[in-house]
Design a protein around this nucleic acid. Sequence first.
RNA 1: CGGGCAGGUCACCCUAUCGUUCCGAAGUUAUUUCGGGAAGGAAAGUCCGGACACCACAGCGCAGCAUAGCGGUUAACAGCCGUCCGUUGAAAAACGAGGACAAGUGCAACAGAAAGAAUGUACAGGUCAUGCUGUAGUGAAAUCAGGUAAACUCUAUGCGGUGAAACGCCAUGUAAACCGGUGCUUGAGGAUUGCGCGUCCGAUGCCGGAGGGUAGGCGGCUAGAUCUUAUCAGUAAUGGUAAGGCCAGAUAAAUGAUAGGGACCCCGCGAGGGGCACAGAAUCCGGCUUAUGACCUGCAUUUUUU
RNA 2: GGGUCAUUAACUCAGUUGGUUUAGAGUGUCACCUUGACAGGGUGGAAGUCACCGGUUCGAAUCCAGUAUGACCCA
Length: 126
Amino acid sequence: MWRMDQSFPRKEKLKSKKRIEQVFTEGSSVSKYPLKLVYLPFEFQEDTKVQVAVSVPKRRFKRAVDRNRVKRLMRESWRLQKASWLPEMKQPHALLFIYIGKELPTLKKLQKAMDVAMHKFLQKQA
RNA sequence: CGGGCAGGUCACCCUAUCGUUCCGAAGUUAUUUCGGGAAGGAAAGUCCGGACACCACAGCGCAGCAUAGCGGUUAACAGCCGUCCGUUGAAAAACGAGGACAAGUGCAACAGAAAGAAUGUACAGGUCAUGCUGUAGUGAAAUCAGGUAAACUCUAUGCGGUGAAACGCCAUGUAAACCGGUGCUUGAGGAUUGCGCGUCCGAUGCCGGAGGGUAGGCGGCUAGAUCUUAUCAGUAAUGGUAAGGCCAGAUAAAUGAUAGGGACCCCGCGAGGGGCACAGAAUCCGGCUUAUGACCUGCAUUUUUU
RNA sequence: GGGUCAUUAACUCAGUUGGUUUAGAGUGUCACCUUGACAGGGUGGAAGUCACCGGUUCGAAUCCAGUAUGACCCA
């Protein structure tokens, strides 16, 4: 039985400050409340197809506990669903998910929103 | 019983699946497998005190800041312990920047004769005589070595500065270019202290203008005033000795997500439903302060009821 | 991670250093007057827990301490 890849290794994390800055200034974006996806085509040194980062503004969530919670849920949501999106991506991208909602989400809601956002993005790139 | 006061403990648990990070071992130089570790009592505020790093291991004077009964404790402190005094409370207890106005200067609204200058009213007492004495009256304070120092100040004690964006190393890149000023041993400027001194560095130098480049990685980074237990000294804070243990090191930032079951609490006759605080390491320790759920122990007992 | 500062009427600010009677100004707002009506002008009024919470003091916006919110700085 073939098993879906649900890992989220280091090389798929967008970590470089410089790259993140570049995605913010040069990238395009699609929105699906409560998420916003900023993306930019990118050539990576390794054979990775994608690098992902998540972000939660301090303005919306004052306490660090809540920010951590939202970020963890977003990472989880990506990890569980990425296998269905990656084959459709034609070229490597840097992706940046920003949470723009005001309230703590549940994993299910977040997964739905992320799915819609990713489909929007995949259609646009075509 | 209720409410009150003090002290202490814990911070829901278990299983399954998927995932993150660090360390070790094996295999290999893509990476994989196995084993082990992975938030707090406040990790918070950054209010104190240290360790550590650099500046000359850091010097002298002034300025500045902090502390303030007495004694003890500590690496150190504004903390903690004991104790005296004062205030609050019925009590248990709690709180206190609690040195000096018998060195100098300043300040005191309204009321009041008068607020530091000097004296005045009524009554009584007293005297040769007089605000000489007492009471009344105003006020927080009225002749008293007056009050006030969270007023300046004085006294005693302590404090060098800057902080992990410290600091060390590697990589990348440009412009040792241009314009103006200043200076070269009779010294510009600098050496992270506000000012002065001293000491040291100092000429491809320094200041200004306009403009250009890099802001990537590694170390620092976790074993320590360490934790647990026993015991000894001490009223206690705390310290000594012995045995055992290793207990987060991330960097757009790991420590998680989901499902099921079980505790506990609340609502309901019931089926069942809901809740389970405050909150997330960022060099590390000792305190303080603030946020906050539950439980346990002890103390005092106003009022009411039996 | 480390530091510096601010908070006074609906809004923008004085006053705070150095304590005391009554916390002021402009804009806005409300009422009245002027006009046939509006604008403008004139007159008068309301609006403040001096961010919150304690302490010192006879007395605190002001001094001291704590809390909250907001802003700014650094290699």
